[in-house]
Write a protein that binds this DNA or RNA. Structure first.
Lengths: 147, 147
DNA sequence: TTATTTACTTATCAAATGATAAGTAATGGA
DNA sequence: TCCATTACTTATCATTTGATAAGTAAATAA
């Protein structure tokens, strides 16, 4: 296997993924929410509850800035901070009812666009796609491989 | 095929792709270059030459802001604008020698990390990965499907 | 107990990005 | 020819984001 060619293919592929997801999520947040704040909520949606340091690490943003954005999200009633009983310096962050609602609607609109994207894909291709997603998730984009 | 389940898988997958590419490209641009500027250069690297409007559309940024960033890149000698002979309102943008050099080095460093990521993946899995990338690129993340 | 480290907050400043108004020059259509 | 449209630029302002210093309180180690 030509690993260099594979890298080039990887680059083209990830660029396409970024482009498609960017298109799918365009103009989704109607409300007064900034891109970083949306990213945080999106992360919470799939990973909650998480600590503030985890959010900070995962998004490569400083703790002070993470803290600031979370405060804003809390003021908008989109998240909740629950202090850890075992270690009272820590906080667990999760979506509030409003936050869940908002992300649910956002994902619903994204899903609409996604279904539109694949509406004419034949059944056997869908199976192939599902398999391909499985493979890549397992072998390339898996959680443990983070640098 | 449960299309809703496929959507959930898609969401998880794209999140993982974003995470991995974000990790791979962390701290790559040493020089005085902003994230948006890097994105533009990255786009040029794979799509040049392109017009200013194409850059603007593709990155969902306004023409004035695109123009400003291109001006900065031009002042840093990383890109060149060539006016279209057929339509003199238009400009084709491409990387300068310096820009090519810089992106070449950036990609080389990213590739190093990528090769490290897949160094222990067995040969038969690499074939499977290559096939999976092909499938998804053809059937889901293809150019024509842009909204 | 005391010192150090960890988890987080508050505050502040600079830089990057986004939005918008107003302009130029070339093109294309009536 | 004249007018509308297109492609792009310049300028300006608001907002978002990033970086950093300094602080609090809890946990841990010596």
């Amino acid at each position: 296997m030509d690993k260099n060619a594979l890298f080039n293919q990887f680059v083209t592929f990830t660029a396409a993924v970024h482009q498609v997801t960017s298109d799918l999520t365009q103009n989704i947040n109607t409300d007064a929410i900034t891109p970083v704040q949306y990213k945080i909520l999106e992360y919470l949606k799939v990973s909650q509850p998480v600590t503030i340091t985890e959010i900070s690490d995962c998004h490569h943003m400083s703790l002070p800035n993470t803290s600031r954005e979370l405060k804003k999200l809390q003021e908008k009633n989109l998240i909740e901070k629950i202090s850890d009983i075992a270690d009272r310096r820590k906080f667990f962050v999760r979506l509030s009812a409003d936050g869940e609602q908002m992300m649910h609607e956002a994902f619903a609109r994204i899903e609409e666009r996604f279904q539109q994207l694949i509406q004419h894909v034949p059944e056997e291709d869908l199976e192939e796609i599902k398999h391909a997603l499985d493979i890549l998730q397992q072998k390339v984009f898996k959680q443990e491989d983070r640098l």
